[in-house]
């Protein structure tokens, strides 16, 4: 098990969808990752070069940089199971079941 998660969330402005995504992600991190994470939120309206550089098309986009492999998921992250499955995140307390 890796020591921690590096997550980057791209949002486009502080829209309800963006806020929902941030809230959902924080909840997942607290509940399922046990706080072992670093989260960077990037607003592409303020930082379009980052969006271009990372080829971010749809927002919100979540990129899991660490641990490898790099995984990418789009959407407001309201579907927690899909987020966990897609990012191959192993929830604390469930992984060794």
């Amino acid at each position: 098990m890796a020591s921690g998660y590096l997550l980057r969330l791209f949002i486009a402005g502080h829209t309800p969808r963006s806020r929902r995504a941030i809230a959902d992600l924080r909840q997942i991190c607290q509940e399922d990752l046990g706080g072992r994470y670093a989260l960077e939120v990037i607003d592409v309206i303020e930082n379009p070069e980052a969006a271009e550089h990372e080829h971010v098309v749809a927002t919100p986009t979540l990129i899991k940089e660490l641990p490898p492999p790099v995984r990418r998921i789009i959407g407001d992250l309201s579907d927690h199971d899909q987020v966990l499955h897609s990012l191959a995140l192993i929830p604390v307390g469930r992984g060794h079941a």
Binding site: F10, A12, A21, I45, H55, I74, L77, Q82, V83
Partner: peptide, 28 residues
Amino acid sequence: FLDAQPDPGMAPAGDVDLGGMLAALDAK
């Protein structure tokens, strides 16, 4: 050329918009 191919492993988890692309485009 702006490359905007989706990541093959990418899956949607909830609602998305094109705001990211449009922000990048606006700047360009």
